[in-house]
Structures are given as C-alpha cells and as structure tokens.
C-alpha cells in the first residue's frame, strides 16, 4: 500500500514538473500563443468545448471507433490464429498473403480505404481493424502453438468437445500472448483512429485537430492533443485491469 502511494506521488511530481516547465515557457519566456499556448489557455479551450458538448461528441466518436475496431480486430485475430493452428493446411495457404498484408503499411493504405469504403465510419473501423488484427493474430498464433502437449493429452483423455477444448484449455492457455498482442494493437488503434479522422469526416478528436490547426486555434489543437493522451491512458488502464483479471493466476502484478 505504501509502495503504491509512493508510486502515485512520483507520478504526480513528474506531472507537476512538466506543467511547471510548460507554464515557464509560456509565462516568463513569453512564447507566443500560436506556437505554444499557456496551460491556462489550453484549459479554457478545453472547458469551452466541454461546455458546448462538442468535446463529448468528438471524444465519444473516437472512443467508439477504437473500441469497435479493437473488439472486431481481436476476435478476428484470435479466430484466424485458432483456425490456422487447428488446420495446418490453412496455415500453408494463408502464410504468403498474410505476410504481404502484414508488411503493407496500413497507414499508407488509409487513403485507399477512404476511396473504397467512403467517408463514413466504415473506412475508419476498417483502418483500425487492420492495425489491431495483426498484433493480436501473431500473439494468438504464438499462444496457441505453445500449448502444453500434456494438456492436449488431458483434453483427449476427458473426451472434451471442440468447444470445451477451446474455451477451457486452448484459449486460457494462449491468453498471455493474446493480451500482449492486444496491448500493442490498442496503441495502434488510437493512432489509426486519429489518422482516419484527419482524412475525412466531421467528428472525432482527429477531426478536431485538423479543424483547430486549419483555423489557427492553437489552444484548441493543444486541448485535442491532450485528450488523445488521456484516451491513450484510459485504454492503457482498461487493458491493465483486463490483464490483471485474466492473468491473475500467473501471479501478475496487482
């Protein structure tokens, strides 16, 4: 408990130092606002859009896309990895195409996704999905392949059905690697979501950034950037909680 408190104090101190440096640059050093708005101005811009309800709309839109992309990418990644370990033939067929898709820079494909799937939410979800899918898929393949053969014996001995095998043995045993993939994927998802909103549409934190920079509202731009940082932290906390819950049996850190 005391250790935890000490960690929080360290966090808080680091943040305060950062804020102080920021304030120092804008106050005594007199950096112009269009380059670096003061913490107060940024805060005011944030409160401004929060009061009108805009913030909620943009934040909600981005978060919704991230969650959708994460869930879909995660399910598809685990599912394909499972099928490929179950049917080795499938792995042989899909290996080539998957390597090409995996090495293709998804960010560079983003404009293409807009052309193919329109300006709406679909192209955004597909970009996020493509970014989440591969880390989760690769993690899951490693997880399913590392299954202890003795656990396979146990499953065979008990005559478990395919579903029981998957639910009771294969998935929990692959979970550590799946979560490693998911954590990498979540960072990518945030990047993908913001990028997709830069390209098209009228909603989301990414849109807010392009709007703010196009109209020289640097405090608003800063506010939007700050919110993406908060969103990233939120995702991190959520995934850590999930990890602690699912992997507590490994003696994972509390």
């Amino acid at each position: 408990m005391a250790k935890r408190l000490a960690a929080w104090v360290d966090y808080a101190l680091a943040l305060i130092l950062l804020l102080a440096a920021w304030w120092f640059a804008t106050g005594p050093m007199e950096m112009p606002t269009y380059l670096l708005p003061s913490p107060l101005r940024t805060w005011n811009a944030l409160v401004g859009i929060a009061v009108t309800g805009e913030l909620c709309v943009h934040l909600g839109f981005t978060l919704q896309n991230i969650v959708l992309g994460l869930v879909l990418g995660c399910v598809a990644g685990v599912a394909l990895a499972y099928l490929m370990t179950r049917f080795p033939k499938l792995a042989v067929w899909l290996d080539g195409p998957l390597v090409i898709l995996q090495t293709a820079p998804k960010i560079a494909l983003a404009p293409l996704f807009v052309v193919w799937f329109g300006f709406g939410i679909l192209s955004k979800i597909i970009l996020i999905f493509s970014l989440v899918f591969f880390p989760v898929f690769i993690g899951s393949v490693a997880g399913f392949r590392s299954l202890d053969p003795k656990l396979k014996d146990l499953a065979k001995l008990l005559g478990l059905s395919t579903f029981q095998r998957f639910r009771q043995i294969e998935l929990p045993s692959a979970m550590p690697e799946v979560l490693v993939g998911l954590k990498i994927g979540a960072v990518q998802a945030l990047v993908g979501a913001v990028l997709a909103e830069w390209m098209s549409g009228k909603f989301g934190l990414g849109y807010l950034m392009t709007f703010a920079s196009a109209t020289y509202k640097t405090p608003l731009l800063f506010a939007a950037v700050l919110m993406t940082v908060v969103l990233g932290l939120l995702l991190h906390v959520m995934l850590t909680m999930l990890e602690n819950r699912l992997l507590s049996w490994k003696g994972a850190k509390k």
Binding site: D148, L151, D153, L154, P172, S173, W249
Partner: peptide, 11 residues
Amino acid sequence: FVFQEPVLLPW
C-alpha cells in the same frame, strides 16, 4: 490417468 507431472490447469 495420473501423469508424471500434475498437469493441472494453472488458471
């Protein structure tokens, strides 16, 4: 069947 190792499900 009792294996050489316990083969318990660790979770």
